[in-house]
Amino acid sequence: MDDHLITCLLSAGFLFLGRLHKKWITRKNINILSGGWGIIFKECSVSKRIILYSFCALVLAVAVVTLYYRQAAAQTQGVSWGNSGDEVTSVQNRLSQWGYYTGSLDGYYGYDTYRAVQNFQRNNGIDPNGIVGDATLDAMGLSSPAAAPSVARGAATDQGDVSLLAQVIEGEASNESYLGKVAVGAVIANRTKSASFPHTISGVIFQDFAFESISNGQAYRPVTSESVEAAQAALAGYDPTGGALFFWNPYKPVSSWIWSRSIITQIGNHVFAR
């Protein structure tokens, strides 16, 4: 029902009620003038009054009930055939994400949208009436919850990676300069991004025979603040090695295989290679 109609009904009802007495008086006079009929009218006047009052009450009641149903409908009805607007666009958008709707996101609820909604409802165990009501909106994830949901505060940090990396830097490069420490950290960070190595800091560090100081337990000692800073710089993306995946001390005996890698540069007592 139209908004204007309800407003008309409501105001008409109130107007009638308000003016009833005045009108009554005028009508009474008219009735008296009209002679014989007037007596009947006069006799009936009480019942007519009741009729008029009940008519007004009826008009008001109709208006109120219509209004109530309209509001209830606004809550449950959502959007249906013939509607248009942003809400229809979101429904179309969501249906096309799920693959139910292939038409354009024009914001008009036409036949295609209707069919898509019905299919969605059927698949989700909702009455397939083609009307996007509360249940359908909820299933589409489009209903805004009444209260803000309570969501826990996360506990994610980068502390584990920083301290692990600092430990290896301490074990492998405690006598190196800051740059040399960042470089060792960068090699480990580079390995996590390479297809040939584990993709985690801990996976790279604890790989068998990867780092001598881890194998012989020398890395497990207190770390200096410089090692921690170097670890942070390496995780922040500093890479003085130009993408190196290996490093070794050229003054110590190492396997000949490692010398076959393509050497990038030397920093302090370490050679870095890809």
Partner: peptide, 10 residues
Amino acid sequence: QGQAIDGSSW
């Protein structure tokens, strides 16, 4: 299967 994540799954 084209089913949505409803309130209770959420």
